[in-house]
Design a protein around this nucleic acid. Structure first.
Length: 428
RNA sequence: GGUGGGGUUCCCGAGUGGCCAAAGGGGGCAGACUGUAAAUCUGCUAGCUAUGCUUUCGGAGGUUCGAAUCCUCCCCCCACCA
């Protein structure tokens, strides 16, 4: 299947600036295109994944992606799609975050020399003089027109600082620089980026007399119209120090029935006809579809090994959806065989055995220390509400303590609700 | 610059001296039901080894036995006018 149709079929395309020519240009390959990321955190989260997957598909068709980290623009803060202004970050923090994000992207796209280009717009904005920018770029923009941009109109209600208002010019200038320096002719972005992308295309035309194109992607919402990718402790991060591989797997595994097909299209690279078939499965079988989704998505982010372990750990706990392998799939999940008690791969908290010496450890403390609960008040609430378990036994006394005799083979299972687990392991 | 209206907990939004850790809704968590789903119903939703104590209503002071509420100064936002 050609690149454009692949994107279309998988629903990556919300709008294009040129429906007539873009498919052909994209399919031909050899284009340089860019996608921007704001390095506002030191890890990507699943909310960033849609553009990441889009880059992957377009790269696979022989195009060269430029990954732009907005080292400079993050210092300004894009108002698009935001109700409120964002806090301004320090330059050091931004640089640190940019490096971390680059590392994570390597899991999803080919980052070898010549296959992808990494740039930081601080490199050209860093030393720019305000007057020069105004003279070179500023006079080419009409405020009247900028005010008609959706992203600006939205914020006109609640207030928009001049700093943020400039964001559109900065992003447009990025496009111009990349077009000039790397012959970049495409920009991909979220649907809220439309105004910024179009501004960039205009700027490229005015300053370089070159043609450029843009594609926007839909904003991901769940069935309830909420923003995708938030859960228990906020965002689902790609950094396993922030979100364990098991929890990452579980995030996908717990998707709603009605969303599985959509998510498979976006976040896995399984063939689209297979996805259609898997998405149609009903009642119990749909759970196999969810396993496949979770496995494939986890495999992309953390590798086959880690994904297999998370899968087996989850199944050890909740059971296999398709134990006999009746449902066909091209996913490598089918070659993952359960051999032993993979329950060892549940998120684990290690604690010195000596800590249990004097009458054990208070249950509330153990739940917070292991990261199952955010605070001891939180843990107390959980216990009062009947959601705390030790080795599958509900704990109803918030004063309870855990002693060494609660451990079997140096390990114990602590649960907050049915799905949040922490394996506590004694070490000597 | 002027006039008026605002800034409340994760979000929206009530609260104009003690009954306020602060109504209601949303979101989130847990329980029941299930399929690790959705819907529904129920409970919880600042922190603390906790019948109490500590921090929280834009910021800093002040009045008071007692302040989200009253006073002073400051910061920020919105609307209109100039």
């Amino acid at each position: 299947m050609n690149c454009f149709n692949e994107l279309k079929e998988r629903n990556f395309i919300y709008q294009t600036t040129d429906d007539e020519h873009i498919p052909e240009i994209l399919n031909r390959g050899g284009n340089v295109y860019y996608v921007g990321f704001d390095p506002t955190a030191d890890s990507l989260h699943v909310g960033h994944l849609l553009p990441v997957m889009a880059i992957r598909h377009v790269q696979a068709a022989g195009n060269i992606p430029i990954v732009l980290v907005g080292g400079a623009t993050a210092l300004v803060g894009d108002p698009s799609g935001k109700q409120e202004a964002r806090p301004i970050m320090s330059k050091e923090k931004v640089a640190e975050n940019a490096a971390a994000i680059k590392g994570q992207l390597a899991h999803f796209i080919d980052t070898t020399e010549g296959k992808a280009i990494f740039v930081n717009n601080a490199d050209w904005f860093g030393n720019m003089l305000y007057i020069d920018f105004l003279r070179e770029v500023g006079y080419r923009f009409s405020v009247n027109r900028m005010l008609t941009a959706e992203s600006v109109k939205l914020r006109l209600e609640t207030g928009l600082s001049f700093l943020e208002f400039n964001y559109m010019l900065l992003q447009a200038y990025d496009f111009y620089v990349l077009n000039k320096g790397h012959n970049c002719t495409f920009q991909l972005g979220g649907q809220d980026q439309w105004g910024n992308i179009v501004a960039g295309i205009d700027l490229v035309r005015r300053m370089s007399s070159k043609e450029a194109f843009g594609i926007t992607m839909p904003l991901l919402m769940n069935d309830k119209g909420e923003k995708f990718g938030k859960s228990v402790a906020g965002a689902i991060w790609l950094d396993e120090k922030k979100t364990s591989v098991f929890d990452y797997y579980q995030f996908w595994r717990n998707s709603a029935d009605g969303e599985v097909e959509k998510l498979l299209n976006y976040f896995t690279v399984l063939p689209t006809d297979e996805i259609k078939r898997l998405g149609r499965l009903q009642a119990p079988e749909i759970n196999r579809t969810k396993e496949i989704l979770a496995f494939e998505a986890t495999k992309l982010a953390h590798g086959h090994e880690a994904a297999s372990r998370a899968y087996l750990a989850a199944c050890a706990k909740f059971g296999f959806a398709d134990p006999n392998g009746k449902i066909e799939t091209s996913s490598s999940i089918k070659s993952v065989v359960s051999e032993s008690g993979s329950i060892a791969d549940l998120p684990t908290y290690r604690i010195p055995a000596a800590n249990f010496a004097n009458g054990g450890i208070w249950i509330v403390k153990l739940m917070t220390d292991s990261g199952l609960c955010n605070s001891s008040s939180d843990a107390r609430r959980l216990i009062k509400g009947g959601g705390a378990y030790i080795n599958e036994t509900r704990i109803s006394d918030e004063k309870a303590t855990v002693g060494e005799n609660d451990f079997q083979n140096e390990a114990l299972l602590l649960k907050a609700g049915k799905k949040n687990v922490r394996r506590i392991v004694l070490e000597s």
